[in-house]
Design a protein around this nucleic acid. Sequence first.
DNA 1: CATCAACCCTGAGAGC
DNA 2: TGCTCTCAGGGTTGAT
Length: 286
Amino acid sequence: MPELPEVETIVRLLRPDLVGRTVLAANVRWARTIAFPSVRTFKRQITGQVIQGVTRRAKFLHLQLSTAELLIHLRMSGDLALKQPGARPSKHDRLILLLAPAGRSASSQAPSTPASAARDSIINLVFNDTRKFGRVWLTKDARDVTGRLGPEPLERRFTVRRLYLALHARHRQLKPLLLDQTFIAGLGNIYTDEALHMARLHPLARADSLTERQARRLHAAIRTTLREGIRRNGASIDWVYRGGDFQNHFRVYDRAGKPCPVCATKIKRLIVGQRGTHICPHCQKV
DNA sequence: CATCAACCCTGAGAGC
DNA sequence: TGCTCTCAGGGTTGAT
């Protein structure tokens, strides 16, 4: 399931191939993928738009277009990839954008070399999503979609002090709070479990019970875990493979019954806020 | 504000 | 082999 590091990986991978291209057409193969506007309006408005930037906000991919913003949330099983225009759509392709080569005047066209051939040709941006939870928005203002998100954990503004104060404003279990995208943006089930273990905090601990020292540990653990995820190109689990290998370095996630990397105690699986949760009972106490 | 359950979906894995 | 059943999981919504 794509979380912040997986989305960041996809953004970095796609950006060089997308910027400058023009959307020629949209093929919507599963109507509910388009969260806003209607499919008809979506097709009309996106056609002719030039991709000017590809960024990330929390778990959203954000494509800056000429006069609109395209936001994509991969949810559980979504993936984005480039395919040759001739390729037959696969079973779970939900949206396909036909993209013209990056603009240049016809007279100054450079001779094509094998290495640059792909960039000079039409290509498909394919949104594949087995479970159909992923959604796409096309809007004039990205804040319509992302406006209520909490702070980006890797930004400078996300300080220990800010986290400590925010934690003490809430009386909630730690893990559901960290999964709440309006509290902090980008963490999902995997990175939350990993960060809590690194910070030696129990997922059921009350947010407002944390000491400053514990808040500092949590702050560092969140950032370290996310950065390691990005460095490893994210985790490849379920049947979505994007080249990442963070799944081979999990401390606790999906490792019930296996030894804690710190103390070798058997890792336990419990349910917290309706989510499968993995802890080391020795390292993480309430 | 906090908590909980239902919903959206599919395919993997278990049980028979 | 093939059927049926259960489950996971991000985010939203509505009830308590």
